[in-house]
């Protein structure tokens, strides 16, 4: 069974329809990159998977569970915010603007989820969190506050913070778009190694090179609908749709 299954997802902000019926499945261990011009609804769709946005129509399942709902007796019951919070534990998210907690050190940022949300012991979590910081190459920065770190370092701490919850699925919302060009590589390297380790990932990105080398599948969105999807070599090197061809001609 697919880990993520989205069927007919629709979403409007006021009178603007940003998602016009998106169907998408992501298998376990699969890395899917969402590409497309800005305003295509890529980020909105990603946020819907984590229920940071509610959807107007359609349904999203993560690991067989309907996002934002509890199914019982043939009906779907909308969940309370604290029940949604429990669903989100299994899904990690990395934001364009990092969103680290500025009043806590790198290590405290990583420990916050396991300690406060899962109620695990500090000593055990501390050791795990240090190992995670080591994995993203920031062991020596554990005591630094976010303001003392570069953008690339902050984003790597944010990845470690998401991984600390041992998620089944990682969502990346333009993780390198707010970074200086020379810092993009260090974040993509961490994401690449994560993908190699078998993490299921949905990545909204403008990094075509990353999509080509890491993604199992590339999905191209325009105006809230999937225009084309397939392996990177199919979509990126031999696009069939005129919208895809236009977009790639501009960014490549």
């Amino acid at each position: 069974m697919a880990l993520v299954e989205a069927v007919g997802v629709r979403k409007s902000f006021g009178h603007t329809e940003v998602l016009r019926g998106i169907d998408l499945t992501v298998d376990r261990g699969e890395v899917v990159c969402l590409l497309g011009p800005s305003g295509a609804g890529k980020s909105t769709f990603l946020r819907c998977v984590n229920h940071l946005e509610t959807i107007d129509a359609g349904r999203i399942w993560v690991d067989g569970v309907p996002v934002g709902f509890r199914s019982s007796g043939g009906k779907l019951f909308e969940l309370r915010e604290r029940e949604v919070a429990a669903q989100r534990r299994d899904v990690g998210m990395v934001f364009q603007r990092f969103n680290l907690f500025p009043h806590r050190t790198a290590l405290e940022n990583v420990m916050e989820g396991p300690v406060q949300v899962l109620g695990r012991g500090r000593a055990e979590v501390r050791a795990e969190s240090l190992a995670l910081l080591e994995r993203v190459g920031l062991a020596e920065k554990s005591g630094s506050y976010p303001a003392q770190l570069s953008g690339g370092q902050q984003q790597r701490v944010a990845i470690a913070r998401a991984l600390a919850m041992k998620p089944k699925l990682m969502l990346f919302d333009e993780p390198t778009s707010a970074l200086d060009p020379e810092l993009v590589g260090e974040v993509l390297d961490v994401m690449t190694s994560l993908a190699r380790d078998g993490m299921t990932m949905i990545v909204v990105t403008h990094e075509i090179g990353f999509a080509r080398s890491v993604a199992d599948r590339v999905v191209f969105l325009v105006d809230g609908a999937v225009v084309e999807s397939g392996t990177p070599s199919d979509v990126l090197d031999n696009p069939q749709q005129p919208r895809t061809q236009q977009f790639l001609a501009k960014v490549l």
Binding site: N50, L52, E81, R82, A85, A86, R88, R89, V91, G92, M93, F95, R97, N99, L100, F101, E112, G113, Q116, V117, A158, R161, A162, A164, M165
Partner: peptide, 13 residues
């Protein structure tokens, strides 16, 4: 974004 980050690691309101 701070609230969203907190939500994303499963924090209750």
């Amino acid at each position: 974004g701070q609230t969203e980050a907190a939500k994303s690691i499963g924090m209750t309101p």
